[in-house]
Amino acid sequence: MSVDNAYAVELKGVTFKRGARSIFNNVDIRIPRGKVTGIMGPSGCGKTTLLRLMGAQLRPASGEVWVAGQNLPTLSRSDLFDARKHMGVLFQSGALFTDLDVFENVAFPLRVHTQLPEEMIRDIVLMKLQAVGLRGAIELMPDELSGGMKRRVALARAIALDPQILMYDEPFVGQDPIAMGVLVRLIRLLNDALGITSIVVSHDLAETASIADYLYVVGDGQVLGQGTPQELMESDNPRIRQFMKGDPDGPVPFHFPAPDYRADLLGKR
């Protein structure tokens, strides 16, 4: 069985559980090749879990995860690591290696996966850091960087090997307005210039909608809706409307399920 070449990533009937709790239930998601696809949804709905399923860091209870023509959950451990060389992930925390400086962090994938001479590695690292605006920070250690800077260094590291698929986990959290604007443009620019497929997991509606070609809205363990940002803005689905407009009241409750408030206050402990 193979996948449609128009899609870089395909999740087919994926179910994922944590213990007895079902996080995703028979989910189908197709990420178009060469496009920026946003995966959105309220906090705690499992967006990061979805990203980890796409990177095969988590194994689904059932279903298929096709990336670049390979069903990742069926691969052997070593084949899986080979497959991941073509993916880049920008983690929410940056996940920089704390014992390496900025230069070595970005150079790391090049050192472990290529036999490039030192001069070339240096040139590539400087180019990647220049793209994220941190070429001047090559000698700094991760603990000397702000949260936003860490994420930009992590982005430079994620693109060091020019991956085919780049996944961003909440890239806009904690960025100041200037860095945010640069990052939004950078995601779009990298996608178009390198011809890669970008998957942006975020709950920042405006930023994600401004760069995404296609959006998925997930919640309650399933895909609530999908389409272009414009289509979702005009959706009649009340759950999607609530999310896209940021309404506090609607089908998605603000409160976690709890007993009656009055009874709870007046009742016995």
Binding site: G55, Q57, A83, A95, F108
Partner: peptide
Amino acid sequence: TEQLSSLEMIGV
């Protein structure tokens, strides 16, 4: 701090 996850996704 997700450094192990990061290594996995770098293919190491």
